[in-house]
Amino acid sequence: MAIRRKLKSDILFNIINLFLLSIIFIIAVYPIWFVLCASISDPVFVNTGKVLLLPKGVTFSGYVSVFKDPAILLGYRNTFFYTIIGTFINLCVTLPAAYALSRKDFVGNKLFTLIFLFTMFFSGGLIPTYLVISKLNMVNTIWVLLVVGATGMTNIILSRTFFVNSIPPEMQEAAQIDGCSNLRLFTNIILPLSKPIIAVMSLFFAVGHWNEYFTAMIYITIPKLKPLQLVLRDILVESQFNAKMIEQGVIDVGEISERLKLQELIRYSLIVVATLPVMCLYPFIQKYFVKGIMIGAVKA
């Protein structure tokens, strides 16, 4: 039975900690709050800096425009699909590989690690990669978004670190002495103990898929396959070609006002709508970070 003694330094520590955390909270939250306010404010007020703590010139037309656009809804549907299936594929590729690399008795461990690491630094570049993918007939298909980026060395290493440091070798050795095969060892013992890392990796991969636009930008030109971020980018980012034209006075800004008006109006609403689903994901993952999950397992 532990005796709890409240040391004076403990109380001081608590106070300082809470104070700092509150400041961090405000700094982190204010810009988000700003985005929310701006999404329902008149763009003229937003751009002259008059929107500070509360929305001004409240209007919901930004959101209305966003939901009326069929391209955005299509992008939503596509992104959900890519995220769910893609994350599953990511986990199936990354976690077993990370586990294999975590075993000291895995012959070729160092070799494989180096082979994988090398790819982080040297890549052929866009054109050869495109050529390979094109030869595999993956351009303009769902596979290019599900498979490219199926794993990354960073995530493999993070998972490997977790396996090495958080799963006691005694457990694995006990299982092996009992005659357990590597496969059963992995699925029945390691995975259930790895909930935190599975949760974290799922989150990382899911967010990666959700925010994906570069791969889609290069390999997808068919509208019905476009993910949400690409649709967003089409609307929000000023096309380079047109920007050059504006600079040269070829297009006078006043005349393309319709498009700029659209951009201004839906810029912030679009951001809110595009990031809301993923933001809601985290609370579900949080419960896996609860302390003390390991205890029961070792004792048993």
Binding site: A97, F106, F116, F122, G125, P128, V148, T151, N182
Partner: peptide, 27 residues
């Protein structure tokens, strides 16, 4: 004894070879 571990690492290995090593000739 650990042949199954090689299966574990196979998907990742295939991925890196196809999408990272083969395009490297573009360097």
């Amino acid at each position: 004894r650990n042949w199954q571990l090689y299966l574990f690492i196979l998907p990742a290995l295939a991925y890196f070879i196809i999408f990272c090593y083969i395009p490297m000739y573009g360097v």
